[in-house]
Design a protein around this nucleic acid. Structure first.
Lengths: 223, 223
DNA sequence: TCTAAATAAAGATTTTATTCTTTATTACTT
DNA sequence: AAGTAATAAAGAATAAAATCTTTATTTAGA
């Protein structure tokens, strides 16, 4: 019969940021497998397709608490659902978008985001031409209404796509309105209270890495 | 007189990716300082504004080869120019954008990118309604013309903003056309030859990190 | 001209993430 | 039913990055 360990592994949480960023990649891959009718998938099989290290995949997936079976792998659908649940993609993540410029409009059109947890229910701006119009199905409102609406609708996720010059002040207004988590798509480093979650997605940062690597490789450096 | 060390520090290159991503933040901050007429700035002064560690700033800046003066700091304009030069922002980085959907259009409108090194000179799509029109000042062409044009204009930077389903095949076509560096804004993990530089900017990855941190903090976890 | 304060720069330490190695489990095969 | 091959899971080692510490430089002020 053997000895059964009774020690519960309880370090379920606290996944690293690189791990969190890889999890959506797994979801997309699993969705593709599902569409092909696959029932099970092993970590090495995923590794060869995604070109990750297979033990890293096992580690990444383990943060969700899911268990795979040796010789079989993971149940594809169960795995996808478990990751989605872990990331909170299946929760009602309603968000406000502030700054309805080009980038903001792109995100308003980017309906795939809904499948990945975020639903933008209103946008805010100061441009009178945009205010009280709709973009897609999303109303664009004057930014003054942010506070009252955030409270009434209990929205606490904000997406920041304003011009750089007003990014900091707008973010502060969002916090004052009860926004707890901000997805910052401006390149500005926001200074906000510690309890506010800020996720930066700077186009500039990515351009910088791309160009430097590109120019370095042109000069024949060893990558 | 003292002993003057004659050993040249030659590890000028090979900045880490986190460092490369911070460099544009410094540029933005320096631009602001310049607009206020500041002549010099010290690493600790920048640190207090940007909320970075000051020694990290010194380390980051040192990859460009610039030297600061004790008690004075760095010359603001010289520092900005040196970083821009290091990242290749002042070079002629002409790029093609492939996939003129919403996200692609947002980038076409995002003229600030020019100040950060990237100039999109043409966009490509398969949608007949878009082909041979212009978006802003940028022509949208049929994707079949990519190869010939890339060769003629010697463009080797590509921006990928297609639907996920065609991301891989489009990327392969770009590589065949002579594109050497791809800024991948799809969430797909591209499988391309090793000599091709790929920089991923996945919205999903960032949403994943944001939501997980948000939900974890709601549950009262220690950040 | 000398002293002291400020700061850059280099080195060491700590932390974090990835990769490698070992162990144990499970299903398939004979 | 037993052995074997495949694989997950846990742990160890390695690599990388951030932070901390020390040293040396230099300019401003006495």
């Amino acid at each position: 019969m053997g000895i059964r360990k009774n020690i519960k592994t309880k370090t379920i949480d606290q996944a690293s940021e690189p791990t969190l960023k890889r999890l959506p990649v797994y979801i997309l891959h699993l969705q593709e497998l599902e569409s092909k009718g696959a029932q099970y998938v092993s970590a090495p099989a995923m590794a060869s397709v995604l070109e990750f290290d297979s033990t890293q995949i096992v580690k990444d997936l383990s943060v969700t608490g899911i268990k795979g079976k040796p010789k079989v792998g993971y149940n594809v659908t169960e795995l996808r659902q478990t990751i989605e649940e872990y990331l909170g993609f299946n929760k009602k993540n309603e968000a406000f978008l502030v700054g309805a410029g080009k980038l903001g409009q792109a995100l308003l059109s980017y309906h795939e985001l809904q499948g990945f947890g975020i639903k933008i229910i209103a946008a805010f701006d100061v441009d009178e031409d945009k205010i009280d119009t709709q973009y897609g199905n999303t109303p664009i409102l004057h930014i003054e209404k942010l506070g009252a609406l955030a409270e009434r609708l209990e929205v606490n996720i904000g997406i920041l796509t304003t011009p750089n010059s007003v990014a900091q002040s707008t973010a502060e207004a969002m916090v004052k309105s009860g926004i707890k988590a901000i997805w910052n798509l401006t390149p500005i480093k926001l200074k906000l209270p510690n309890n506010i979650i800020v996720q930066d997605t700077s186009m500039y940062a990515n351009v910088a890495v791309l160009l430097k690597k590109h120019h370095s490789s042109e000069k024949g450096e060893s990558n």
